[in-house]
Simulated assay, not measured.
Amino acid sequence: MTVLAAVIALVGSLFFALGAALQQFEAVGSAKPGLLALLRRPRWLIGGASILAGGGLHIVALGLGPLTVVQPMGVASLLFALPIAATLHGRKPSRKELTAAGVVASGLIGLVLLVPESDGPTQLSPNGVLTLLGVAGVAAVLLWAGSKAVSPAGRAALLATSSGVLYGATATLMRVLVDGGWNWWYLLALPVPALLALMMLQRAYAVGHFGVSFASLQIADPLTAVAFGALLLGEPLPTGILPVAAALLTAVGTVALARTSPLEAHNDPA
C-alpha cells in the first residue's frame, strides 16, 4: 500500500504540474491577469481541473500511505512543471534550470520530512482565525508592495510567495475544519485567502519567470502552514542543524533558479 500511495502521489504531482504550466501559459504577459478574463480561456480552465485532480489524488494517497512518503512526492511537481512549461513555450529547459530546481526540491523534501507529526485534534478560537487571516493578509500585502521595486525574477518570486502565504493560511484553516470540527463561520472565511492566493499567483505567472514563481509557491505554502500550525495550533517544530541545512539548500536553489529561469513570453507554438 505504501508503494501504491507513492505512485498515486507522484501521478497527482504530474497533474498539478500540468495544471500550473497551463495556467501560467495563459496568464503570462498580461498586465492585469484578472480571474474573470482567465475564466473565459479553456486552457486555463483545463489547468484548474488538472490541479483539482492532482489535489484529489494527493488526498487519496494520504489515505493509503504515511505522510513521510506521500508529502515528498508532491515536491516532484516542481521538476515536472519546468519541462511542461518549457514545451508549451516552444523551448527546452536548460540543464542549469533543472539542476537548480533539483536543489530546491531536495531542500524542500528535507524540510517536509523533518517536520514532526502532530498528535491530536487541532482547535482554533475565533480570535485565532482573525489572527491567522490578519497576519497572512498583512504579509501578502507587504510582499505584493515589495514586488513593485525589484527585478522581474524578484517580482515573480515575491508575488508567488505572497500567494503561498495565503495558500498556507488556507491549508491551516482547512486542517482545523477537518480535524477540529466544522464551523460555518470558518467555512465562510475559507474562500477569502484561497481566492486572493489564486489572484496573486496569476500575477506572478504573468511576469514570465515560471520556474521562480512555481518554486517560490512550493516553498512558501508548506512553510507558512507549518509556522501557523506552530504559532496558533501548538504543533511541534523541527529542531537541530538539519532543518537549517535544508532551508539553506532550498534558498540557494531558489536564488540559482532565479538566475537561470528565462523570461518567457506568450508565444503559441505551431
Rank of each mutant, 00 (worst) to 15 (best):
G208E: 04
F210R: 09
L187Y: 00
L177T: 12
D179P: 01
V207G: 07
L190M: 14
R203V: 00
V212T: 15
V178I: 14
P193M: 15
A171M: 08
Q202P: 03
D221M: 10
V176T: 10
H209C: 08
L177Q: 13
Q202N: 14
A227C: 02
L198H: 03
M174H: 04
L198K: 00
A206C: 10
L190D: 14
A189Q: 10
G208I: 05
R203Y: 06
M174K: 01
W184H: 07
G180H: 03
S216D: 04
L173I: 13
A227T: 15
A225M: 01
M174P: 06
L223G: 03
F214H: 11
S213F: 05
F210V: 15
L201Q: 13
F210C: 14
V176H: 06
L217I: 04
L195M: 09
L223E: 00
D179M: 14
D221W: 02
L173A: 14
M199I: 02
L187D: 13
W184Q: 03
A194N: 11
G208T: 11
G211M: 09
S213N: 08
V207Y: 00
L223T: 14
Q218P: 03
V226T: 13
L223M: 04
L195P: 05
L187T: 15
D179C: 06
S216R: 05
W185V: 12
G181D: 06
T172N: 12
L190Q: 10
F210G: 09
A171D: 10
L217C: 03
Y205S: 01
A215Y: 05
G181R: 02
P191N: 12
V226Y: 01
M199N: 02
L177A: 14
W182K: 06
D221G: 01
D221L: 13
L177D: 03
P193W: 04
F210I: 12
A197S: 09
L188P: 06
P222V: 11
